[in-house]
Design a protein around this nucleic acid. Structure first.
Ligand SMILES: [Zn+2]
Ligand SMILES: [Zn+2]
Ligand SMILES: [Zn+2]
Ligand SMILES: [Zn+2]
Lengths: 139, 139
DNA sequence: AAGGTCCCTATAGTGACTACAGGGTTAGAT
DNA sequence: ATCTAACCCTGTAGTCACTATAGGGACCTT
């Protein structure tokens, strides 16, 4: 019953990954082309499950597919130093922190915008006014 | 010298928008198709500058083109209540706040990941280990 | 007349999927 | 044995907001 070979649907359920996404990872070179059954169905080994799980966890942490490609390559060479791994993670963390800062600035702007609205007509709406460079009648 | 009609390049410089982006906005229906010169060049009026400035400011604040389309429609009907405007802005603010929360959770995870690395070989790297579901030798 | 800068259309690429269309395969129930 | 639902296949196109070519035409200055 617990066959060593998995269908794409089983893999999909086990990793909470859509079938199309698995095929997309294959086309992108992140997953190797698996063996096929007589009926041309993809037939996955447990190692593929491991690899896909790795990819999904890394994606959940926001790593890009390019970064994951490198991480997977690095993971294969077990004896080398993990410096390069750290660097990718640090770089990603820095990017996340930059995005947070950008979004916080945005949040402040939007808060300010919203607090100014007195809820009248569009003509006197401070939100529209702030977005408009000049009176809109200038034509 | 200050001609009423602007070329796409002038508009581009005045709004810090790439020429291609302006043409893209036209194709997307955000900007009306402008008049053309004899040589088939786009010829913009000041109203187009206003509209493009509006779009760019709203984009800077992270509104989607769909949201901007609605905002522009609302802005045209000056006598109506600005409730709908507020709602779009509030919705957008909520989305920004959700993104910030998501990224902060990510930041914590990445911090934890990075703090655990003892900088040895890949075989003992906690980052790789955390991403891997099982020992990678399982094959 | 030549050169540089501007402008035109149309198409394809980005990232990371997602959603069809239009079929073939298989497992379980009848 | 047959049916049918659920699964799987390939290939293509769509998402968002642009960006980047390719291959030309227009305009201005010298
Ligand atoms: Zn209001
Ligand atoms: Zn308002
Ligand atoms: Zn380290
Ligand atoms: Zn490490």
């Amino acid at each position: 019953m617990t066959n060593k070979h998995l269908t794409i649907g089983t893999l999909s359920r086990m990793t909470a990954t859509k079938v199309e996404t698995i095929r997309f990872y294959e086309k992108s070179g992140l997953l190797a082309k698996p063996a096929r059954t007589e009926g041309n169905y993809r037939s996955y080994a447990p190692a593929d499950l491991n690899r896909l799980s790795f990819i999904r966890r890394a994606r959940d942490l926001g790593f890009s597919l390019d970064q994951i490609r490198v991480l997977l390559d690095l993971a294969d060479d077990r004896s080398r130093s993990c410096e390069a791994v750290d660097e990718i993670a640090k770089e990603h963390l820095a990017e996340v922190e930059r995005k947070i800062a950008d979004l916080k600035a945005l949040q402040r702007e939007l808060d300010r915008l919203l607090s100014q609205c007195r809820c009248g007509t569009v003509a006197e709406c401070r939100i529209i006014e702030t977005l408009s460079p000049l009176p809109l009648e200038v034509n």
